[in-house]
Design a protein around this nucleic acid. Structure first.
Lengths: 151, 151
DNA sequence: CCACAACTGCAACAGACTTGCAAGAGGTGG
DNA sequence: CCACCTCTTGCAAGTCTGTTGCAGTTGTGG
């Protein structure tokens, strides 16, 4: 009925791992589900639910099913979404373990980082302001090197 | 017709400065406009358009007018808005000059900073990743000291 | 291959804006 | 101080993103 709570630290090397994890939790691997997972594995950049639904692969993919599958995958720890301010949420694979992101507000590309890479920055912010930054859910928005050069 | 492009580096010490700036740009200072400016000056924390419209001060304040005024004020450089992920955009006074914000995703409070305070952090990010972070439009989201302690 | 709960697809709904337009009201010139 | 002109308003309708209810369909364990 409701989604299960949390996942053990799983690793997802490929689609089959994701499907296996879903089945292990009692979820079913349906056609729309496969479609969403395929879309996520097919794109290096974060994608919106609209973009997933619009893929040629399955013409009649229903948006609500896409959202429901994304939500499930997010609960499973396979997917994360970020908010770029305006526009829809963008979904991306977490891969294995926690990731944090530098998001370019111009080209929309996300650069994935190991959280330890941002620890010095997080520490510096906490030391100075007592604010514990969480870049996992809300990435560091700005301009990537290319877009900054093009400004 | 359309909003003018950008503003010179103005300082807004109080409501009257804002009204004067509006008039100087050819805009009119109407009742809903005053209402929005009053609401912004009355609140230390960022507020949503809904909250502004709902103020007791003027019962029949129309949401679309609030949005239109906020947009104008933002073009004028008086107001900035931030996205807390879910929920509506939150609007706040820029005050004088640029500001950057630490936003608590739990209590919604924004801590206003002088941009120079974040320069070391911005520099460190740029040095390591070539990513030019812009915290003005999208603040650093995380937990403020109190909420972090309560976790 | 069966049964049955987990999904799907559809349609309606919700929240946050946005837009079109006729009516109304700042404010400036006379 | 009044008239006029244009900027603004208020309302209604529309858009966009996402959510929910429900009847029908379909994976899956047995």
């Amino acid at each position: 009925m409701t989604e299960p709570v949390q996942t053990p630290p799983l690793r997802f090397e490929g689609k089959e791992d994701v499907f296996a994890a879903l089945r292990a939790e009692g979820f079913r691997v349906s056609t729309p589900c496969r479609h969403v997972v395929n879309a996520l594995f097919a794109s290096a950049d974060p994608v919106s639910a609209q973009q997933i639904a619009a893929r040629a692969e399955i013409p009649g993919a229903d948006l609500s099913s896409v959202y429901r599958n994304l939500e499930r995958l997010e609960n499973l720890g396979v997917v994360r979404h970020v908010h770029l301010g305006h526009g829809p949420s963008l979904y991306m694979l977490v891969g294995s373990g926690e990731r944090e992101y530098l998001l370019c507000e111009r080209c929309g590309r996300a650069r994935s980082l190991d959280p330890t890479e941002l620890d010095p920055i997080r520490d510096q912010i906490e030391r100075r302001f007592g604010h514990r930054a969480r870049f996992g859910h809300f990435p560091i928005v700005g301009l990537c090197a290319e877009c900054a050069a093009a400004e």
